[in-house]
Nucleic acid binder design. Structure first.
Length: 108
DNA sequence: CCGATGACTTCTC
DNA sequence: GGAGAAGCCATCG
């Protein structure tokens, strides 16, 4: 496991319940700003990582659930978020800027 | 090292 | 506003 993945997972696991974060923010926080795509790539691996990584709390810059189809079912991601109090309309997070969360200080 | 891949981002049309 | 293309960077084989 590369440091990149480790940091990504560390940040994602720290996202509070009912909050969400973006790929770009995570990548930027880690230091690899342009590697937002790689963050998503790391999320794909999150299935084989323990403990569970709340990848459903990570969305793209528009608050759109672009990675929903990578869960079991295309509706699972939205269901998980809604069960945590996040409102979603048309695959887009409502009050996105309001519940948006960013890592503070050191995560490791 | 190189080419291919990707759950991104931004610009253009 | 949707679709296509280019830029970006880390990972994998």
């Amino acid at each position: 496991m590369s440091d990149f993945y480790t940091k990504v997972y560390a940040v994602v696991r720290k996202i509070p319940k009912g909050k969400i974060c973006t790929y770009g923010d995570i990548a930027e926080y880690i230091g690899t700003k342009g590697a937002a795509r790689t963050v998503g790539y790391a999320m794909n691996y999150s299935h084989q990582v323990t403990p569970f990584v709340p990848a459903h709390r990570v969305v793209n810059r528009n608050g759109l659930l672009t990675g929903k189809q990578h869960f079991g079912t295309p509706t699972l991601m939205q269901q998980l978020l809604e069960s945590e109090g996040v409102k979603i309309i048309n695959n887009q997070i409502q009050d996105f800027e309001k519940i948006r969360w960013k890592p503070k200080g050191k995560i490791l």
